[in-house]
């Protein structure tokens, strides 16, 4: 009852499970190719977009410095909340930025980069206020517990670390990691949204029985449907990556960062399944 062990998986991978996941991924891509490439290549490309977006999210979450409850007590570095909340915040902020760019018809590249910048901006603002509150509100200096010197600035960390803690505050590398994570998350979320939006804009008017005159009226439905699917697929990938991290991480210099390959495999297969079903909603 008193012990609270947490899963402490190393960096190893399960070969059989990985092989099965890759087979599943290829099977879904192949099925979509056979079923829909002849109908319209856009539907097949959308599935690829969703899968790439999901992998970007799964990778990006590993950069985000997550402290959880220990960080709120100044006993671990990072932002004092869970992975799912932080990733959802960054991803949804990115999705809003990207959706604005898509609505203005700025093209695919501009739109997804606008989405990435939205997510990065949200994480940068969060990290800045986290540092302000830690330093001036709680009187906690920033010190990493996982590395001796900061990998970017080269500043020594050990002198500032308090006894009995895993580090505290938000070190510079974690700040940078958070911004990179937000950028990748926003990029992935917007890519999923863009891919699904194109499919729904194509298929929904006929599906809902709207005539040629009413086709523009269906756009809100396509936007909302693509948005809710993007949020759903985003949360699935973010939570899977969070399970991979299990608890707290400091960002890209944390030893847990080396676990990211298995999160990417999981994200590829999970977003392939979710993306296939999301495309079936309109294409079936």
């Amino acid at each position: 009852m008193t012990v609270t062990p947490k899963p402490t998986g190393g960096v190893g991978m399960n070969p059989l499970a990985n092989a099965l996941s890759i087979i599943l991924l290829i099977a879904i891509i192949g099925a979509t190719y056979i079923l829909y490439y002849g109908v319209n290549p856009l539907i097949f490309n959308a599935l690829i977009g969703v899968i790439v977006g999901g992998a970007l999210i799964g990778f990006g979450v590993h950069f985000v410095p997550v402290g959880g409850a220990p960080a709120a007590m100044g006993q671990a570095p990072g932002i004092a909340t869970g992975v799912a909340m932080l990733a959802a915040g960054a991803g949804l902020a990115g999705l809003f930025g990207g959706a604005f760019a898509i609505a203005s018809n700025l093209g695919l590249m501009t739109s997804i980069i606008a989405g990435g910048i939205g997510g990065a901006l949200m994480m940068a603002i969060t990290c800045m206020f986290v540092v302000l509150i830690y330093t001036y509100g709680m009187g906690i200096p920033s010190a990493s517990g996982k590395v001796k010197v900061d990998p970017i600035t080269g500043d020594s960390q050990t002198e500032y670390k308090s006894q009995g803690t895993e580090g505290h505050g938000l070190p510079f590398s974690s700040f940078v990691g958070g911004v990179i994570g937000g950028f990748l998350g926003g990029l992935g979320g917007t890519l999923i949204y863009y891919a699904l939006l194109r499919v729904y804009e194509l298929r929904l008017p006929a599906l809902l029985g709207a005539g040629l005159l009413q086709a523009p009226a269906v756009v809100p439905v396509a936007v909302s449907l693509a948005g809710i699917f993007a949020i759903g697929i985003f949360l699935v990938n973010a939570v899977l990556a969070a399970y991979n991290i299990t608890g707290t991480t400091e960002g890209f210099h944390d030893p847990k960062f080396a676990r990211f390959p298995r999160a990417i495999v999981a994200a590829l297969a999970a977003s392939a399944v979710c993306g296939f079903v999301a495309i079936l909603v309109a294409a079936m």
Partner: peptide, 13 residues
């Protein structure tokens, strides 16, 4: 499928 990913690929066990 998500459960399999979480339990076996990510090795939550």
């Amino acid at each position: 499928i998500i459960g399999y990913m979480a339990n076996d690929v990510i090795m939550m066990k």
